[in-house]
């Protein structure tokens, strides 16, 4: 049963990389069930991340957000800050796709705080870029320019010309 779980995970990843997102979701859902049977929280977290990603490419944004929220909960349980940051970033982007900019800002700010805590300048730059865009979408140009300037400074610092 444990090997079956791993095989479903690998199948899900392969379908995903082949662009067959429907089959990827089915495989990762099986992987998730087996992870739960074993109480394997890391595997459960991985399955939720992979499911969220596949749902994004199926255009199932609300479902993706639910899987990413489960990922976030499990990342906190596992005390994995990097995964917690990644889940917040995914949620911020997914809420942008859902055009819920207030929620997008909420998660991008959470991502920004963790990126700062982890001294992850690339992550911080991406959070500022995303926040600038979300505030622009809301018409809050003061906050938008604030984050655009921070994004600009960080990009210069890390030598990201694009």
């Amino acid at each position: 049963r444990a090997a079956q779980g791993r095989a479903y995970g690998n199948l899900g990843n392969t379908y995903y990389l082949l662009g067959n997102f429907g089959k990827a979701v089915k495989s990762h859902q099986e992987r998730l069930e087996i992870a739960k049977e074993f109480g394997d929280k890391s595997a459960e977290r991985r399955a939720c991340s992979n499911l969220g990603n596949a749902c994004v490419f199926l255009g199932e944004f609300a479902m993706a957000a639910e899987y990413y929220k489960r990922t976030l909960h499990l990342a906190r349980l596992l005390k994995d800050k990097a995964i917690e940051a990644q889940a917040c970033y995914s949620l911020g982007n997914t809420y942008t796709l859902l055009q819920d900019y207030e929620k997008a800002i909420e998660y991008h700010l959470k991502h920004l705080l963790i990126a700062q805590e982890l001294a992850d300048r690339i992550g911080e730059g991406r959070a500022c870029w995303s926040l600038g865009n979300a505030y622009t979408a809301l018409g809050n140009h003061e906050q938008a320019v604030h984050f655009a300037e921070r994004h600009f400074d960080i990009s210069k610092e890390i030598g990201d010309r694009s």
Partner: peptide, 26 residues
């Protein structure tokens, strides 16, 4: 409005490009 929409999604598009190759291994 169209231009605003494009500006608003560029960071999301970059995220999706990275996401497309992100499969967490067993």
């Amino acid at each position: 409005v169209q231009r605003m929409h494009l500006i608003q999604v560029d960071s999301v598009q970059r995220w999706m490009e990275d996401l497309r190759l992100m499969a967490e291994c067993e």
